[in-house]
Design a protein around this nucleic acid. Structure first.
Lengths: 230, 230
DNA sequence: CCAGGAATAATGTGCATACATAATAGCGGG
DNA sequence: CCCGCTATTATGTATGCACATTATTCCTGG
């Protein structure tokens, strides 16, 4: 008998009104209780629908001030950051991995700042190449804290440090950044591209609580695009 | 007034257990009812806490089968995409804007595909430069559907098309992509950089329901970084 | 032994209610 | 007229309950 009013349907209706221009930027929209009455559902259902829209930046909500459509919607784009090997497999290509260099060296300043570690401290430095169908896909330049538990037994000849870390370290927090850099001669050789070619570069640093774990730069072969829907 | 167990505190506790290694990758964690009993709150409170962690990719949940820690955590990075002017102001710099070119031209194939419009259709083509403290910040190469309502009255000499669209078109969906490209001679002149310099490039296409609205390429001056916390 | 269906166990959702919290509005006294 | 207190109002959250949805498990009949 009951019409199944789900929070998704409430959300869809809200989106419809936004798209149709019934709710215009800057304007205040009906409050939860009123929408609930109008749509025939509980206030908590409306709450969940609008809460998620606000989290996505499509609405602004303030206690006592109600809910309004933002004048300058700050849209949010979300990227999934998978393991490189899975990323390659998802494209239907065959992943490969080659360790180029491995050494213990003093941590450069940039990486030290990124993961809030001491500059100059001895860190494990890896340079590796990821292949897709035997063609260069992405170069990985990584610094790892030698005090990371369980590191001794790791063999980075065959296993990507990327994957080892995922499987062997605990949940951690960190930062990620995107930039464009020019290929150095060494990177150009690795990625089989022209020197100074523009490379999409992703910088990631991770920590587990107080302990710095790893900082990595991923240099993607020219032409690589990272895409998502809004 | 008993201890207020909030969903945030439940979430924090779950994160603590993940970080501490009490819940290890691949393992199944206690079900909602048990956690609720253990923590002294309602199941719905636990539900919300875990639901959000799952949405962030830190847990995997399946009906019957319970909740487990993913073996390969697909982390999600979220970027906020503000209006360029606000972005510049947020850096404490003074924003500027200059329209370089404006013409009606047939839509190129790449842009047509991005916003699912007809290639060759006459679109409004803008090239503009955004300045931060009078230095080049970002070049904007934009195609606009001439049938967009209200477009006639717009003056892109003084107002960024970016802002006009935000304020004058309704909510829309679309896609966004990141890449690295080499500066063309024209872009190098605009951005005051070397030709072939690596530029972080953001491509965005938006539609309002069935109607294509705009496709834009933003070429950021060399050295620009886009950053977010995980 | 196997196919297939029923019981089961977990999450997903909706509802009504109560209370908490924050920001505004309004009022009063100086 | 302004300052500060208080009342109001809309959102935020916790709870208990019921039922929906899905995989899984298990059982049953062939």
């Amino acid at each position: 008998m009951r019409s199944p009013i789900t929070w998704q349907s409430v959300q869809a209706e809200a989106l419809r009104r936004l798209r149709a221009g019934l709710w215009t930027p800057g304007a205040r929209i009906p409050d939860e209780a009123e929408l609930a009455r109008e749509l025939g559902c509980a206030r908590s259902t409306v709450n969940r629908a609008l809460r998620e829209l606000a989290a996505a930046g499509l609405l602004e909500r303030r206690r006592k001030g109600g809910t309004r459509v933002p004048l300058t919607p700050v849209r949010k784009a979300t990227f999934e950051i998978p393991i490189i090997r899975l990323d390659i497999e998802a494209r239907g290509q065959c992943p490969g991995y080659r360790l180029i260099r491995q050494a213990t060296e003093p941590l450069p300043k940039a990486e030290a700042r990124a993961m809030r570690a001491d500059p100059g401290a001895p860190f494990l430095h890896l340079l590796a190449l990821h292949l897709a169908d035997d063609r260069p896909f992405c170069a990985e330049d990584r610094w790892i804290n030698p005090e990371t538990p369980g590191l001794d037994g790791a063999d980075f000849e065959t296993l990507s440090a990327n994957e080892w870390l995922v499987g062997n370290t605990l949940f951690s927090d960190g930062a990620i950044g995107f930039a464009a850099t020019a290929a150095t001669p060494e990177l150009a050789a690795l990625l089989d591209c022209a020197p100074d070619a523009p490379l999409l570069t992703i910088t990631r640093s991770t920590r587990a609580g107080p302990r710095p774990i790893t900082a990595v730069r991923l240099f993607y072969a020219p032409g690589h695009r990272l895409e998502t829907r809004l």
